[in-house]
Amino acid sequence: MKWDPAKYVEFGDYRSRPFFDLTARIHADRPARVVDLGCGPGNLTATLAERWPGARVLGLDSSGEMLAKAASLAEEVPSLQFEQADIAAWMPAPDTDVVVSNAALQWVPGHQDLMRRWLEALRPGAWFAMQVPGNFNSPSHSLMRELAASGRWAAKLDGVLRGGESVGEPRDYLSILLDGGWAADAWETSYQQVLPGPDPVLEWVRGTALRPVVAALEEDDAKRFESEYAAALRDAYPQGAHGTVFPFRRIFAVGRKAR
């Protein structure tokens, strides 16, 4: 599945805010190694290098398109590095002090078991922080799944989209951290995002949730699917005087391993 970095950062302020709300809860002092799992175009990973200038900061992502965008950032900051990798196969190095995963684990089946292995492998005093979307049952996603399962699209899109099972609830991630011997905090936030322009929710999901559908269909079919989906979105998210309000729920968890 190909990613479009320009489309992904189109709503940059909205997509960045949960990252900063998440990382504000990390109270590491002078970490030696910081890892960002699912770093995307790297702009947010670069802020970790600014925050901890003495650390080696590594961003990992499976998308070559995203990493091509990130490459110029690494040229400017010697302590910043990006690598193409499947985070499902990653394990922390012994000197890893901070692990961040922002809006990436929802793409990884079985990521809660992965978390348990990462938490066990990290050294005492390390920090782990993750954030995933919690809106898989919102109209933006449920309408997409309903359309994909309808007569015209069912055969072509069978198994392409996942539902609410893609992520856990805050209590699930809290339990994983606590069971692993970590001091932990978990919470959720529903951002009331006011999006401008025509069909703004469609434009939003084009950068993320709609990518698997587009990848699975021929170009003409993808356009036809988008047209039908856009009509359903307009009913679910009507435009108001100030734009289109798009509630976006996010799930967060942060922990520190006991020394």
Rank of each mutant, 00 (worst) to 15 (best):
L177S: 01
P198Q: 13
A88N: 06
V132K: 01
G125D: 08
E75W: 12
E165G: 05
T189W: 10
L157C: 04
G163I: 13
P133W: 03
D221Q: 15
P92G: 00
L58S: 00
Q81I: 00
G134N: 01
A71L: 12
A88S: 11
D13T: 10
A24D: 15
V99M: 03
I26Y: 03
S138H: 10
D179C: 00
W153S: 01
R259D: 11
L195E: 07
G59R: 01
Q81A: 05
R256G: 01
A24S: 14
T244R: 02
K223C: 12
F20G: 06
A183H: 13
F128P: 03
L122F: 04
G180H: 05
L217C: 15
I176E: 02
A215D: 15
G255E: 02
W127L: 05
G207Y: 03
M1Y: 13
L233P: 04
R30S: 14
P53L: 13
I87Q: 00
S79W: 07
D221S: 15
P200V: 08
A230S: 14
D86Q: 12
I176R: 02
Q193C: 00
S101M: 07
A103L: 05
L119V: 09
D97S: 05
Y237M: 09
V77M: 14
N137T: 06
D235P: 04
L202H: 10
G180A: 10
P5F: 06
S175W: 06
S62M: 13
V108R: 02
F20K: 10
A68G: 12
L80Y: 04
I26P: 03
F20D: 12
A28C: 12
L202A: 10
L114F: 00
P212W: 15
F246A: 05
G110N: 08
A6F: 11
P41G: 02
R249P: 02
Y229G: 05
S166T: 07
A70Y: 05
R15H: 05
Q84P: 07
P92M: 01
R15S: 01
D29C: 13
Q84N: 08
G207P: 03
R250Y: 08
Y8L: 11
L48S: 04
F248I: 02
P124L: 00
E10W: 07
R211N: 15
P198K: 13
M1T: 14
S227R: 15
A231V: 13
R152P: 03
D199G: 11
A253F: 02
H27V: 08
D95C: 03
E203V: 12
W3Q: 05
G255H: 01
P133K: 01
A155T: 10
A241G: 08
R206C: 09
W187N: 00
T96I: 05
A216N: 10
E165Q: 12
